[in-house]
């Protein structure tokens, strides 16, 4: 793994001056992932905040080749780019070693892009797919997705008189990707930069497809201040809401093992999207929520062989 000194010398491939919000987790995730590439890299992006904010014609924030196609097909698009690379390299038309990465938000990955992602991973393209998970369709104004956590209020799952935000648990996409038996799958957070860059290095080094799911808080959607992004992401990890782990050639490894998890409410309380859960009468929801986290944590520890 590269040292921080080495990493600090690498060029930032996403320039400043892009139009993402202050405190956006997505741009942090992208910059950290690209620091791990350490080679010429072609970037693809699904439609979403990242794409819209980095490519307002005639400007681009990308210092590396970039392609946006549509919402649900970042994986298929980059799989095509990689196929072209394999063909042209075989014919001697391309000499350099090039890496490939597709970025998608949770809407473009968990929901509308899941088929495209699954297909590309199954086909074994030498590419990395990174989901920046901010838990809703933030680009279009905070609508609920398959990644929206239980109880979160969004514009399509608002908290009202009879509903307390999203009634369902979120989909566990990282485990779905692990079930594809690809060389490398990991879950990471923008709060743990060293862990994320190391995972990115492993993902790019893997021969074949790799997937990283990065928790990337959205101050607008989570109803937090823009300087709280990293702090809230850290609490997600410390409470077990977002465990850091990796599956390398089928071996499950827990990357962050606190002696004791912080209570989930530490993560929920600072966020406006969960405010209704703290109203009198909703105590049972918080209890149910903590129960879900405990169960998921226990299952993950078992998979990772941790007592």
């Amino acid at each position: 793994m590269a040292t921080i000194k080495e990493i600090s010398k690498r060029e930032d491939l996403l320039s400043g001056g892009h139009r993402l919000c202050a405190g956006c987790g997505a741009s942090i995730a992208v910059r950290q992932v690209l620091l791990g590439a350490n080679a010429p890299v072609v970037v693809g992006s699904a439609t979403g905040c990242l794409e819209v904010s980095t490519t307002p014609f005639p400007f681009t924030a990308w210092k590396t080749p970039f392609i946006h196609n549509a919402f649900e097909n970042a994986a298929a698009t980059i799989s095509g780019v990689e196929a072209a690379y394999q063909a042209l390299k075989r014919k001697g038309k391309i000499k350099k070693d090039i890496k490939f990465v597709a970025f998608g938000g949770d809407g473009g990955t968990y929901d509308i892009g899941l088929q495209s992602l699954s297909g590309a991973m199954e086909r074994g393209h030498d590419m990395v797919y990174v989901c920046y998970d901010n838990g809703a369709y933030m680009n279009t104004g905070i609508q609920r997705s398959g990644a929206t956590p239980f109880g979160a209020a969004t514009t399509t799952s608002p908290a009202g008189k009879v509903r307390a935000g999203k009634p369902q648990q979120r989909k566990d996409l990282t485990q779905i990707m692990a079930a594809h038996n690809i060389p490398y799958v990991a879950q990471a957070s923008v709060s743990h930069w060293k862990d994320l860059i190391e995972k990115s290095e492993k993902a790019f080094a893997a021969e074949g497809p790799a997937f990283i799911n990065v928790l990337a808080p959205c101050p607008r959607g989570w109803r937090i201040k823009s300087d709280e992004t990293v702090e809230i992401a850290k609490l997600a990890v410390q409470t077990g809401f977002w465990p850091l782990y990796e599956v390398e050639d089928g071996e499950w490894k827990l990357n962050f093992k606190p002696k004791e998890l912080k209570p989930l409410v530490d993560f929920l309380k600072p966020q406006g999207r969960f405010a209704h859960l703290f109203k009198p009468g909703n105590e049972h929801l918080l209890e149910e929520y903590q129960g879900q986290i405990n169960k998921n944590w226990a299952q993950l520890k078992k998979r990772c062989g941790v007592e």
């Binding site: 799989s79 072209a84 086909r123």
Partner: peptide, 24 residues
């Protein structure tokens, strides 16, 4: 030819777009 057995026609054209943009 690099023959990509995609999982749908949407992905077929998506991959064709990526490959063609790539220069193939």
């Amino acid at each position: 030819t690099e023959y990509v057995n995609v999982e749908s026609e949407h992905s077929a054209m998506s991959a064709c777009i990526g490959a063609s943009a790539a220069g193939a």
